[in-house]
Amino acid sequence: MSIKEKTIFARPDSMTDVVTHYCPGCTHGVIHRLVAEVIDEMGLREQAVGVAPVGCSVLAYNYFNTDFLEAPHGRAPALATGFKRLRPDMTVFTYQGDGDLISIGMSEIMHAANRGEKFTTIFVNNAIYGMTGGQMAPTTLQGQITSTCPAGRDLDKTGHPIRMVELLSGLVTPMYLERVSVHSPRHIIQAKKAVRKAFEYQNANKCFSLVEVLSTCPTNWGQTPEEATDWLEKNMLSYYPLGVKKDSFGEGGDR
């Protein structure tokens, strides 16, 4: 009597079986999977609509098994607002990078969050512009070398890197904000809980939810995937502390 083989980890239904264009070791792929797993576990695939940004994840719709909209650079929160207002019954999420969300899209994310739009934003912070080949982003760290700050970011000239969830948490409107990371298995496991919580808040029609995910960019950081996870640990965690920044409907929430 042979013991039946059981699969205990496999590709989520909400993810297509397509080899992504992301660079080897780029943690976009991990974040895609976390979102897809949460959508599967909550049974939301058939009512989910993602909004892709402009950036490395502009092709996200090739990797998700859900309907998608493709937004102009920085405008995903506005598209999500327009869609969700007409279809509050559907699950809407935007997936954006740091250049998309903080740089060109700052106005859109601030106001969507402040209006308390009931969609979820997955905000990937890898401290650089990936798709265009490694330029300085609003989240690039002091002294970090990129193709547009080749001598290292000079805060006197460019100002300081922006801590987005802290910035958003200053808004009075109730919302859920957490920063997580995916640079190690332990962090990935914890990150999934935050993604799940965000989609739960949307599903319960409670509030706007945003999860900032610290992510690596081996190619443009000029490091191997493994070195990139170490660099993130040593440099980004201190400047971008992980944890819940605002959880208006949580136990200790401000509601």
Binding site: I3, T7, I8, P24, T27, G29
Partner: peptide, 22 residues
């Protein structure tokens, strides 16, 4: 069968299977 390899894989290239209890 701890699945940490699959959890960390950015390309969902790893499937984990087991026989009997897990």
């Amino acid at each position: 069968g701890c699945k940490l390899c699959a959890v960390t894989c950015p390309d969902v290239a790893i499937e984990v299977v087991t026989h009997g209890t897990s």
